[in-house]
Design a binder for these strands. Structure first.
Lengths: 270, 270
DNA sequence: CCCTCTACTCGAACAGTGATCCATATCGAA
DNA sequence: TTCGATATGGATCACTGTTCGAGTAGAGGG
């Protein structure tokens, strides 16, 4: 992972060069509604740096889950006090903005290839899901946030490039991009359950497999006269191959998108 | 949120009689993993009844939003103390289970008509979205919950009937049902923002329209050399006709589902 | 009539949360 | 040295979900 030790955070002006790993990427000015404290001048040492806080937060989230992230716990992990964090990130909300953008940066987007645009869109979808599975809390963090950080901007630009290369009309490209993100988030939202790390269900917590069995058994036990479909199809609910389910979803989406675009072009052209 | 340890506060075994609220409809046995205290015998007056608590909670949520629902605030609205609520609903989590199922009951599902199955699936989708807009917090409440209450069961049964009537193979019908719900949730999740009621943004809170304008203006301000698509398509991001966006989404989904089903049938048949 | 047992109520308290105050410390510049 | 911006963190506030345990109401049995 590119730790991207950008010193002095992202302030205005300062056309700094990006670190190794993300070579040559241009600096994006921060959007005006960012809920972070604005610091002027970068001429001090950073004993605790905003970036270190974000990294520690992600480490803590990966290990213990979303509910375990409190400002106090994070401060302790950094060997400092909770109040200090507020000077750097403004609020827990501001911290989560930064966390989200950093994780969005993990989504890899291929260079646009017009001949393969449908397969490339599916690849983007798979990559986004992979990040959401690696950090099961990220979908929940993204709720209520409109990501406009540097990484989100770059992801949108590159995804739009693929869609435009595929010949989608402007509106269709933008909506396809936005709706695809929503669709994937909807899927991974129930896939990741409460968003805690995979390990450590101490109590009588059922595994996903056990839960599916319970649900299926329950459905089978319903009165068949009133619920013929649920009783008859109960076995299908046990299917928990989420990879296959996700593959079906993006096949449906990309195929439907391509056809909607084709019919939109047909309407416009004739 | 807090201790996920053991939400099942009271788990002594006692046969439960259903309350007097749901008359006429066929009784569905409660699923075994329900996190509610089980009460035996109804031979007392109900001064505060579980149903009244759920109704009050929904009223409070509709008025003030998800963040405003605390057990204390709800108790005050009912003229009682917070501790009393716990005897009836076990935990806030159990209460939200009940709230969710009650709201699921608001989703109307038409009787299956084989000739119009695609249109009927879209109607189900529109109805689900309508409920999610009427109660903007409901998508957030559903996160991490697998709804298995009476209303959820009936909704699944009726939706599956429509899909089966449309000729979808068993697996396709079940997955179509589940994926459609996820897809709609993903869409309404960003549509409803933080899930607060439509009114009352006291501060410098931008309206959705203003927010879209700000975002569009920001995108237009990016360096065009590096972000040609974002700059060129910025205007498209201002389009906030969510009805049209949603219509496009379900067109994509239902069309893609129908074609996936057709090709699945073709593979199976040949 | 009283007595007991169960269903039910609720003030008080506990541990934890995000956030803020404010006295203190550190250091570059003047 | 002095000054002021940068940075720290203990104490504290209002609030959360939840539990405890003392208390109340009312039907059934004697």
């Amino acid at each position: 992972m590119s730790t991207e030790t950008s010193p002095a955070a992202a302030d205005r002006a300062a056309p700094q060069q990006a670190g190794p790993g993300t070579a040559g990427l241009p600096e994006v000015p921060p959007p005006p509604w960012q809920r972070l404290p604005e610091r002027s001048s970068r001429r001090r040492r950073e004993p605790i740096s905003r970036d270190a806080i974000v990294d520690a937060a992600i480490a803590l989230l990966d290990r213990d889950g979303l509910d375990a992230l409190s400002m106090r716990a994070l401060a302790e992990q950094l060997g400092t006090g909770a109040a200090s964090l507020y000077w750097h990130v403004g609020s827990k909300d501001g911290l989560l903005d930064l966390v989200l953008d950093k994780l969005i940066g993990e989504v890899a987007i291929p260079d646009a290839d017009p001949a393969r645009w449908q397969e490339q869109v599916k690849e983007v979808a798979r990559n986004q899901r992979a990040v959401s599975l690696r950090h099961p809390y990220v979908v929940r963090v993204s709720i209520g946030r409109i990501p406009m950080g540097q990484n989100a901007i770059r992801l949108s630009e590159r995804t739009l490039a693929i869609m435009r290369a595929g010949g989608l009309p402007p509106r269709m490209a933008v909506q396809g991009h936005l709706l695809l993100i929503s669709t994937i988030n909807g899927f991974t939202l129930d896939e990741t359950g409460v968003g805690d790390p995979p390990g450590a269900q101490p109590d009588g917590a059922p595994s996903p497999q056990e839960a599916a069995e319970m649900a299926s058994a329950y459905l089978r036990s319903l009165p068949p006269a009133h619920f013929p479909n649920l009783v008859g199809l109960a076995a299908e609910f046990t299917l928990v191959d989420d990879d296959a389910r996700f593959g079906l979803l993006i096949d449906i989406f990309v195929d439907g998108l391509a056809r909607a675009a084709a019919s939109a072009r047909a309407r416009a052209g004739g």
